[in-house]
Design a protein around this nucleic acid. Structure first.
Lengths: 154, 154
DNA sequence: CCTGAAAATCGCAGTCG
DNA sequence: CGACTGCGATTTTCAGG
């Protein structure tokens, strides 16, 4: 399951989470490997599905989406296809987590205006009751998983 | 504010959100620009802060963090420094959004085990009351902002 | 995991519309 | 001023050890 990542693998993951466009030669330098060895490890991590993609991070405000909101959706039925269809159509829904608890889904929505957010939430409300919270700020920069401290299951 | 992004800019953003490691020559090809013109546009987008970084996306389960949870924190006081200090120390907290509403913060936490999650939530609980929801699944692949349809403020 | 060479790419001039 | 061309330096890729 955990494709047994060694410290070098984690070093590669850390570097590419920080800067996905790092050249392979420079990557090799940073993890004390030749470029070809680093490349081979990287291909292995990609092939095993540990790395699922490389993405540019966009400033939502500068891109014209100054309104960010967390919306929780309480979804009574068990027919989830219509919701998934809406998720596919509405690009303003950036993330959708299905969770335990009273609210079945937690979504993150980027909108161009309050009116736009209102319209999007209205569309979601046809599926169930919604709770919307506006986001003041992200208090953390981008972050992904790091090498575990080795006793987390203790 | 919205550095007036034209369709070519959006095409560049779309390509790099899909694959941040795309070579500049191939990027130019896809947006019908020469490599140097594409590069210049890209540097402009980076310089303007529209693109804030390039990140590898890691499969949390395969990386040894099979437990994902959304934790909402109701934070009574106004002294936020101690919380921010904890955020900096606990790498398992992947995201922290400060929001309106009863719960001041919404956090996303990746844990190696339920015990690990429990410990992390306990640390958060010293700041206020917490609500924890486990994540069954992400129902959407990675997604970022796209070119607006031009009448979103209507 | 390393070396080494061929092919592709990157970065930087200078030039055109 | 934004985009294109040309060329040297770097990077990528793929042999083979």
């Amino acid at each position: 399951m955990t494709e047994s990542l060694d410290p070098t693998d984690w070093a590669i993951l850390a570097e590419l989470q920080r800067d996905a466009r790092l050249p392979l030669t420079e990557l090799g330098r940073r993890v004390n490997l030749s470029a070809s060895a680093a490349t081979e490890r990287l291909r292995r991590l990609e092939g095993a599905g540990v790395i699922t993609g490389y993405h540019a991070e966009i400033d939502l405000g500068k891109a014209g989406y100054p309104v960010l909101a967390v919306v929780r959706l309480k979804y009574p039925g068990s027919r989830h296809e219509p919701l998934h269809k809406l998720l596919g159509e509405r690009a303003e829904i950036l993330e959708c987590l299905r969770t335990t608890g009273d609210d079945c889904y937690t979504l993150k929505i980027a909108a161009a205006s309050m009116a736009h957010l209102e319209r999007t939430v209205d569309e979601l409300a046809q599926f169930g009751s919604t709770t919307t919270n506006l986001v003041y700020s992200r208090t953390l920069p981008y972050r992904g998983p790091r090498e575990p401290a080795r006793d987390l299951d203790a």
